[in-house]
């Protein structure tokens, strides 16, 4: 999906299915055949596809780090304000009133974790990206309704075999995706 100096005239070749099962089969077969630059499209998340593509994601770890950072910032802020920068006696309670500090600290933990989850997901997905070659294919708009698509990108080293492979997956249609 990255930009190239020497652009292939095609972004890739797209096969269309009317059911999810053949899409799952196509994903498995493509990986078995050694294709690497592949992607599946469906109107809803399909676990079989994600598993068949062998996808891994780093998001949980990122969120954990975000949460820990949030806790540190929350506690650090309160400690610095209440103990170092602006110590005032409130009803004889200690400057380091940790029972009270737990509450804002909890909130900053959640806030940082949530921000990491959403913006991390968008960043890893390369969004926002308003335009994409796939949007040039008219049928592709059905991917958000009831059609299933499988794409082999032109960057794939075995791209020359792509059309033949896709034809063997019994799709309802095959289309070229211009770049």
């Amino acid at each position: 999906m990255a930009h190239h100096d020497h652009k292939h005239p095609l972004h890739g070749i797209l096969a269309e299915f009317d059911r999810p099962e053949p899409l799952i089969e196509a994903c498995k077969a493509a990986r078995a055949a050694g294709f690497t630059k592949i992607e599946a499209f469906s109107p809803m998340p399909i676990h079989g596809v994600i598993e068949a593509l062998g996808l891994k994601n780093r998001l949980p770890l990122m969120v954990l780090c975000g949460g820990i950072a949030g806790a540190a910032v929350g506690f650090g802020l309160q400690y610095w304000v209440s103990v170092l920068e602006y110590p005032i006696n409130i009803g004889g309670r200690p400057y380091l009133s940790w029972p009270a500090f737990i509450v804002p600290m909890f909130e900053t933990t959640i806030l940082f974790a949530a921000l990491t989850a959403v913006f991390g997901m968008l960043a890893l997905n390369g969004l926002p990206r308003p335009h994409h070659p796939l949007f040039g294919v008219e049928r592709f708009s059905e991917a958000s309704r009831d059609r299933f698509f499988f794409l082999i990108e032109s960057e794939d080293p075995q791209f020359d075999k792509a059309r033949e492979f896709l034809a063997s997956c019994h799709p309802t249609a095959i289309e070229e995706v211009p770049n």
């Binding site: 009803g91 309670r93 029972p99 009270a100 737990i102 509450v103």
Partner: peptide, 12 residues
């Protein structure tokens, strides 16, 4: 448990 503690600690 913490809520009970915090409420009692705060009101003192």
């Amino acid at each position: 448990s913490f809520s009970q503690f915090l409420i009692i600690w705060s009101a003192n």
